[in-house]
Computed example of a mutant assay.
Amino acid sequence: MAKPMTKTQLVAALAEEMGADKKAAGAALDAITAIITREVSAGGAVTLPGVGKIYCRERPERMVRNPATGEQFKKEADKVVKMTIAKALKDSVNG
């Protein structure tokens, strides 16, 4: 498996794709990240066309087990961020 792209590499690739400088590409990436964070933390969802949908899901209170000790305890309800991958991206990876 290849190493994940770092933010610096992503900004450089974005700048090249946009035909802009790295400062503008970095600002665009930061703005997109802020919008996604704000929307998902407020309980909404964001669809990135061709990539997928990012959303927040609530998990109910449940019993969990500590694997080290085997002790069971109740875990409070919480929220988790999920992402559903778009069919176009799946097809491009598999095809």
Score class of each variant (00 low, 15 high):
42 A>S: 14
26 G>E: 03
51 V>C: 05
28 A>R: 04
43 G>L: 04
43 G>S: 09
22 K>H: 04
22 K>N: 09
19 G>Q: 08
53 K>S: 11
52 G>A: 07
28 A>Y: 04
48 L>W: 01
53 K>E: 10
15 A>Q: 14
26 G>K: 08
45 A>W: 06
19 G>N: 05
33 T>V: 12
53 K>Y: 09
52 G>H: 07
22 K>E: 11
42 A>L: 05
19 G>R: 08
19 G>H: 09
47 T>E: 13
31 A>F: 06
27 A>E: 08
48 L>A: 01
40 V>D: 00
53 K>L: 10
46 V>K: 01
26 G>W: 07
25 A>Y: 03
29 L>Y: 07
14 L>K: 12
38 R>I: 01
51 V>G: 04
18 M>G: 04
22 K>R: 15
38 R>Q: 14
16 E>A: 15
26 G>F: 02
23 K>F: 06
36 I>V: 15
41 S>G: 02
42 A>M: 05
36 I>M: 11
25 A>W: 01
49 P>Y: 01
18 M>Q: 13
42 A>K: 11
15 A>W: 12
47 T>R: 12
14 L>D: 11
42 A>G: 11
38 R>V: 00
40 V>T: 02
54 I>A: 10
36 I>N: 01
49 P>C: 00
52 G>C: 09
26 G>S: 03
21 D>M: 00
41 S>R: 14
20 A>Y: 09
19 G>F: 11
16 E>D: 15
54 I>S: 10
27 A>G: 04
17 E>G: 12
18 M>W: 13
49 P>T: 10
36 I>A: 08
53 K>C: 08
31 A>K: 10
39 E>W: 05
27 A>W: 00
18 M>F: 14
24 A>V: 02
54 I>F: 15
16 E>P: 09
22 K>L: 04
54 I>T: 03
37 T>N: 07
24 A>Y: 07
39 E>Q: 10
42 A>H: 08
41 S>T: 13
50 G>Y: 03
26 G>D: 00
28 A>G: 02
50 G>F: 06
43 G>R: 01
30 D>K: 06
20 A>M: 11
27 A>C: 00
43 G>Y: 01
23 K>H: 12
26 G>H: 00
30 D>S: 09
36 I>W: 07
22 K>Y: 04
43 G>D: 03
35 I>E: 12
39 E>S: 02
33 T>I: 07
20 A>K: 15
24 A>H: 06
39 E>L: 12
32 I>A: 11
31 A>G: 13
30 D>Y: 01
32 I>P: 00
29 L>G: 00
18 M>L: 15
49 P>R: 09
14 L>C: 15
37 T>V: 05
44 G>T: 05
34 A>P: 07
15 A>S: 13
48 L>K: 04
51 V>I: 13
29 L>C: 03
49 P>L: 07
19 G>P: 01
35 I>W: 02
35 I>V: 15
50 G>W: 01
48 L>P: 06
45 A>G: 02
43 G>T: 08
18 M>C: 13
32 I>L: 15
21 D>P: 06
45 A>C: 01
30 D>I: 02
19 G>K: 09
17 E>Y: 13
46 V>A: 01
54 I>H: 00
14 L>G: 14
22 K>I: 00
35 I>A: 14
48 L>E: 03
35 I>Y: 10
34 A>Q: 07
21 D>H: 12
16 E>V: 11
